[in-house]
């Protein structure tokens, strides 16, 4: 019952949204088609809703005929269909609601965030600027992998001889995990050319890479360390008992097992690093957010900033899905034991 009501509400809202969409687009063909598809889609919950009603009638009939077990089966099937109807109808209501919101205020919302002319005007410069974000992120990621590993190894050096280096690595990680990335960026990008005049000619992107590397290697060192110490000491004992040296044990037994475990958290840190390239805008580096802000103040319209958001979404989502895939695969492998 609820499912049916929800389905009808969803249909009504979707029709309204489709009309707004068409009006907003001046009855453009694409908008009309999109609207029509959405409306047809919102009709879908009716199917399970009617199946649920049919199932319910079947149950009553079976009950009258005293067929208890088939009646129970029919009731369960009807309930399942009703739940499906509700689930899909709720989704239709949410989508339609979001669309209506986007066209609320006489198209004001759409105007503010999604103006096509503003996108057309800014697109070329924006994509060019976004390239800066990408290569800065990639170079930083490679450096972070190396520096992070060095820090992690320093933190795990054994014995008294390793103590001073262990302490240095510990202090480094603590400090750079404490300082907000944006502060490190400001200090490094603006400070380095003043403190070391020889670096005054360096492109600011290089300094941006240095500051992101400094921040993120502190995190990644922790990821490596957690991965290595998550391997049970009995593995190390088994390797040593066979006569393998400390380094051989690390290389052939511990690291290969740790790598698989650290890849998902490592990729998560990389995604976060990509997004933090946006912070370089505060240091006057011509990356995509800075450029979009310039366009925003030129056009008095936020749409270029939405475009920047879209760029980040497009490159991040596949990676996020990939991380999920890896995590699920590992979970499945563990479950198989």
């Amino acid at each position: 019952m609820v499912g049916l009501v929800l389905a009808l509400v969803g249909i009504a809202m979707m029709v309204a949204a489709a009309l707004r969409l068409r009006d907003y687009n001046g009855s453009g063909l694409v908008a009309t088609i999109v609207g029509a598809v959405l409306v047809v889609g919102s009709l879908y919950p009716l199917v399970p809703a009617f199946k649920a009603f049919a199932g319910d009638r079947k149950r009553s009939r079976l009950l009258r005929e005293d067929q208890l077990v088939p009646a129970r089966r029919a009731a369960a099937a009807a309930r399942e269909e009703a739940q499906i109807a509700m689930g899909y109808a709720a989704a239709a209501v949410i989508v339609a609601g979001l669309l209506l919101m986007a066209f609320a205020n006489g198209g004001g919302v759409a105007e503010t965030f999604f103006t096509k002319s503003a996108w057309d005007a800014s697109f070329n410069e924006m994509i060019h600027a976004f390239w800066t974000n990408i290569w800065v992120a990639c170079v930083s990621q490679v450096l972070v992998l190396i520096v992070g590993l060095l820090l992690a190894i320093m933190r795990m050096l054994p014995g008294r001889a390793g103590a001073p280096l262990r302490l240095i690595a510990l202090v480094y990680c603590d400090i750079f995990r404490a300082i907000p990335a944006i502060v490190t960026i400001l200090l490094i990008v603006f400070g380095t050319p003043l403190a070391f005049p020889t670096t005054a000619n360096w492109p600011p992107e290089w300094l941006g890479i240095v500051s992101l590397t400094m921040t993120y290697s502190a995190y990644v060192a922790e990821v490596y360390r957690a991965g290595l110490s998550s391997i049970h000491p009995s593995q190390s004992a088994a390797a040593r008992s066979l006569g393998l040296s400390y380094t051989q044990t690390l290389r052939t037994v511990l690291v290969p097992q740790a790598v698989r475990r650290v890849i998902p958290p490592l990729l998560n840190d990389f995604i976060s690093l990509q997004k933090d390239t946006a912070l370089l805008s505060t240091a006057s580096i011509a990356e995509v957010v800075l450029v979009s802000k310039l366009w925003e103040s030129n056009l008095f319209n936020l749409s270029p900033i939405t475009l920047a958001a879209a760029f980040f979404i497009v490159i991040t989502i596949p990676q996020a899905r990939f991380v999920d895939y890896l995590i699920e695969r590992d979970a499945a492998r563990r479950g198989a034991h």
Binding site: S234, S241, L242, G243, T252, V253
Partner: peptide, 29 residues
């Protein structure tokens, strides 16, 4: 390392290397 070449130990919990095949486990040392 030389001592351990002369002394083999087998543990209660096997402690095989899970990322290596049986053959690789045996051939490693």
């Amino acid at each position: 390392n030389a001592l351990r070449r002369d002394v083999g130990i087998v543990f209660q919990s096997y402690n095989l290397f899970p990322h290596m095949s049986v053959l690789e486990n045996v051939m490693l040392a």
